[in-house]
Design a protein around this nucleic acid. Structure first.
Length: 593
DNA sequence: AGCGGTCACGACTGGAGAGA
DNA sequence: TCTCTCCAGTCGTGACCGCT
């Protein structure tokens, strides 16, 4: 049996009056000459079709994976389910620029048509309607010929479909723009798509590549980084840097990173999570030096002194640090360094982000371990250098850092001993090697993660995203260095380049050029009162005030655009508006009653 | 089985408005 | 200019029903 090939005999806009319509059941539909069809070798009746099938004849079966690149829908063809047939018909329409619709679609049958005027159709029904377990569906009859022209706006070219088609492009080029996507769809599928659709397509593609944001939140419990913790327990000193970095992903928020110090004073990631006088007080290594500096501050700036006095110096001044920490580090540069390392991961869904961070950590651990292996001597190089130039005269520094001060070094030399042996074991090469002896093992696939069904499900933070483009760049404090500088446009006269009129820009242009005609919404059936455009004024006999500087003829809206404007949607509901930029448990709501 | 009709629901979409 | 969110309209879908 060679069924009629619906996709193959594409005669778009053909003048063939004789429809090559084939029906398996031999019914006379719309005046089709059944006898004539029956005389043809390739025409088959439904009765014989069923008989043949029950006799074991093999009808061609549609393969959703292989046949989708060029779906050929033949009469008698079998589909695993009605949905498979629908998808195949849609795909046929997308690839051949036809808008396929399904006016009849119920539990036992499916009819696909092209449009009202086109004679193309497919009729299919369940092979075994009495068997609820068997979803197999067969094309019973069809007309493969189109009597319509092709369409360039296809509803079946959905954002999801575009996203799947162009997934690879987004992998190759993460900065693949919406404009490029729009042009590529137009070129590849002869289909005009809006930018909004392209945007959703991009979201879909990124979701396919990186995983859905919400789905990943639910897996956080099952995702751990044990190796990091082990390394910290073995060799790092009891000091950690805790710092947050701003996330750019869908749910926003902060990543709290906990970073330790390794033997060589380098950063060791544990888990993911004032001016001159201020610095002088912070760097003071003795309480006496600290008190003197604070006195100086009180005399110069009482306000700053009062503010600083309220802070516990054990948290910020070297002079009050516990000697147990074995570190004199004042700032959280280690955390900032870590934030820079993970910069590229911040916009991704949570687990993808953590995986990216983990990969960075794995590489870091291997690199550090290899470096440590090459060191000569018992001390880490940075510490050795520090020891060589240690000119600090405070004994407390030895207590605080574990590295002998200048006086101690002199005594050690007098005693003819090695200064290295007086340095705390925190700084030895052996310690460094121990810290990096653990590897971050690759995480097994999600299917192999231990199920924690007894735990409360983690949901993404409740979030209502306000209109407008979300912030991706952290707002800098006034005293922070601004990366970009722009000349202010305050006081500069605006001029919209198309209508050439001074005093407004594109957005506020009310001429035809700008098309920003104010439309009253929220009035169903009420004709909108618009400001008359020059052409409308002309029609009404009113004098036209054309822009004098204009050399361009404003483009008139198309009929479709005009119709759309007539039917512009209703005004948005002015109900309670909840504005919450950052996820929080406390809902801040702005009500406009 | 083929076909036509109605209706509720919801996915998808375009456009407005906004920030970067 | 680009990108983003939200809103409301459009239209496809599925579940009915009934007639031929």
């Amino acid at each position: 049996m060679s069924g009629s090939d619906v996709s193959g005999s594409d005669v778009s806009g053909s003048d063939s009056d004789v429809s090559e319509r084939v029906s398996l059941d031999g019914l006379d539909m719309d005046g089709i000459e059944v006898d004539e069809l029956c005389d043809r070798d390739d025409s088959v009746r439904l009765d014989s079709a069923h008989e043949s099938n029950s006799d074991g004849q093999n009808w061609p079966e549609f393969n959703l994976e292989n046949d989708m690149s060029n779906p050929r829908l033949k009469v008698g063809m079998l589909f695993k389910s009605k949905d498979s047939l629908k998808e195949a018909a849609k795909q046929y329409g997308r690839l051949n620029s036809y808008l396929i619709k399904f006016p009849k679609n119920d539990l036992r049958r499916l009819k696909a048509v092209c449009n009202e005027k086109c004679s193309w159709f497919i009729w299919a029904s369940k092979l075994n309607p009495n068997d609820p377990t068997d979803q197999t569906c067969q094309i019973r009859s069809s007309n493969p010929n189109h009597t319509c022209s092709k369409v360039y706006k296809n509803r079946n070219v959905t954002s999801s479909w575009i996203g799947e088609q162009y997934k690879e492009k987004f992998i190759a080029d993460p900065d693949y723009s919406l404009k490029s996507l729009q042009q590529d769809v137009k070129r590849d599928f002869c289909c005009l798509v809006s930018q909004a659709k392209c945007r959703r397509a991009k979201l879909r593609a990124l979701e396919l590549i990186e995983g859905a944001h919400k789905a990943q939140y639910e897996k956080i419990y099952e995702y751990l980084l044990e190796a990091c913790k082990d390394g910290y327990r073995i060799g790092c000193r009891r000091i950690v840097g805790l710092d947050g970095c701003f996330l750019k992903g869908y749910y926003g928020g902060y990543l709290l990173a906990t970073v330790g110090i390794d033997a060589n004073n380098g950063i060791y990631p544990l888990a993911y999570e004032l001016k001159y006088l201020l610095w002088k007080a912070a760097r003071a290594s003795t309480t006496r030096e600290f008190d003197d500096t604070m006195d100086e501050l009180r005399k110069t700036n009482q306000h700053d002194y009062n503010w600083l006095k309220k802070k516990n110096p054990t948290h910020w001044s070297r002079s009050h640090f516990s000697v147990k920490s074995h570190s004199d580090m004042l700032v959280d540069n280690l955390s900032e360094s870590f934030n820079k390392v993970i910069l590229e991961a911040r916009g991704k869904p949570i687990l993808t982000m953590m995986e990216t961070v983990k990969t960075k950590i794995m590489l870091l651990i291997v690199k550090k371990k290899e470096e440590a292996g090459k060191w000569k001597g018992i001390l880490c190089p940075k510490i050795k250098k520090k020891l060589d130039v240690n000119i600090k005269d405070s004994l407390r520094n030895w207590d605080l850092t574990g590295i002998p001060c200048m006086h101690a070094l002199a005594v050690i030399h007098v005693k003819n001993e090695f200064p290295e042996t007086y340095v705390q074991t925190w700084y030895t090469k052996q310690t460094q090697l121990q810290i990096y002896s653990n590897f971050v093992s690759p995480v097994k696939g999600p299917k192999q993660w231990a199920s924690l069904s007894n735990m409360l499900l983690i949901l993404p933070p409740p979030l209502r995203r306000p209109p407008g483009r979300p912030t991706k760049v952290r707002r800098k404090e006034p005293d922070e260095l601004q990366t970009t500088e722009r000349l202010s446009k305050r006081g500069v006269e605006m001029r919209y380049s198309k209508c050439k009129i001074i005093g407004h820009n594109k957005r506020s242009c009310k001429w035809e050029v700008g098309q920003n005609i104010p439309v009253k919404r929220h009035q169903v059936g009420v004709r909108t009162q618009q400001q008359a455009t020059p052409s409308q004024q002309a029609q009404q006999g009113a004098p036209i005030q054309l822009p004098t500087a204009s050399t361009q003829i404003p483009t008139a809206p198309t009929h479709q655009e005009a119709a759309l404007r007539q039917k512009l949607p209703l005004k948005r509901k002015s109900t309670t508006t909840t504005v919450r930029w950052m996820p929080s448990t406390q809902e801040s709501s702005m009500t406009d009653h």
